[in-house]
Simulated assay, not measured.
Amino acid sequence: MAMSTPTSSSDALVTIFGGSGFLGRHVVRALAPELHRMRIAVRRPDLTGHLQPLGRVGQIHAVQANLRNADSVASAVRDAGVVINLVGILFERGKQSFEAVHVEGAATVARAAAAQGARLIHVSAIGADPDSSALYARTKGQAEAAVLVEAPDAVILRPSVIFGPDDAFFNKFAAMARIAPALPLIGGGRTRFQPVFGGDVAEAVRKAVDGEVAPGIYELGGPDVATFKELMRLVLDITQRRRLLLPVPFWAAKLLGAVLKILPNPPLTPDQVELLKADNVVSEAAIRENRTLAGLGIEAHTMAAVVPSYLWRYRKAGQFTGRRSLA
């Protein structure tokens, strides 16, 4: 599935929408040694200072752009050779709806990239399906369709749950374990995941930027497949805490999500509960067709090699907590 003529060049300008976020930091770090010039297109350019140390002087600069504003998107991709769209939301808030961000926003970026003649790399998610019962997955699937209409030669990457320092998955449950007497197992905790390290996803993006990835849809999962219950046990083991693992039926979790979704940053929404009804793993078709990390020549990191390096801070005494002291 690889192309034979890399296009890496210090003259190449890469526009990255959503480059200041969790995955964006990994992508910028992966591209910096290649000497690509990077334009970080975000709603708040003043909040991108943490990216500057990742590259050389003048290599990384930020511009204001909003996916709901086509003119700002077109301006952000001007003169770019490659456009990367990392933008996604986990819950809706005000004008930031799944339809506006995932579907219309992705189509706007793809349209601008096509008009510029730039190659497009679009990051979606495993489970993206225009017929999904979960709005998140449904709009992710609709976004892929919209992208391919505007940019048929796009590279679409579908990661599973992404882990790494500052992730929104392991950190959330580790923080919950510090104060809650139990961790919820929604639907009994039987949903399967294939968590993937953010650095490995970024390496796939880097290969696509350098022309080493053929157009198509790729599914990115790590080497470990685990149920939600097993992942919660991993969190408790690393943080050295004893907590009850409490099975919660889907219907009850949806009621709880309906209450919690009013919070500014809800830990659970009804749509996220709906997502948990389907496994989040690389498909057999993707494995068979080498549309995976292994197919791209990337050796994926295990959870055991990475997750303990940042979850230790949730132990009772941080790195000073002994194995015999459990809270």
Rank of each mutant, 00 (worst) to 15 (best):
T7L: 11
L13F: 10
L13W: 07
V14F: 08
V14L: 04
I16C: 08
H26P: 05
H26W: 14
A41H: 04
L47C: 01
H50Y: 10
H50C: 06
G58I: 10
Q59G: 07
A62T: 04
R68F: 04
R68A: 13
A70L: 11
S72Q: 08
V73L: 04
V73I: 12
V77H: 03
V82N: 01
V83H: 04
I84D: 01
Q96E: 12
S97E: 04
F98S: 02
H102N: 03
A107D: 01
A112V: 06
R119W: 08
L120W: 06
G127P: 08
D131A: 14
S132N: 15
R138P: 03
A145C: 10
A146M: 09
V147F: 10
L148G: 04
D153T: 05
L157H: 09
P159G: 15
P159H: 11
I162A: 11
I162E: 06
I162R: 12
G164F: 05
R178S: 15
R178G: 07
P181K: 14
L185S: 09
G188Q: 02
G189L: 09
T191L: 02
P195W: 11
K207L: 13
G211N: 12
I217S: 09
E219Q: 15
T227Q: 06
R233W: 00
R241F: 10
L245V: 07
P247W: 05
V259T: 14
K261V: 15
L268Q: 07
V273A: 05
K277L: 13
D279W: 07
V282A: 07
S283N: 00
A286S: 14
L296S: 09
V307E: 03
S309N: 15
G318D: 04
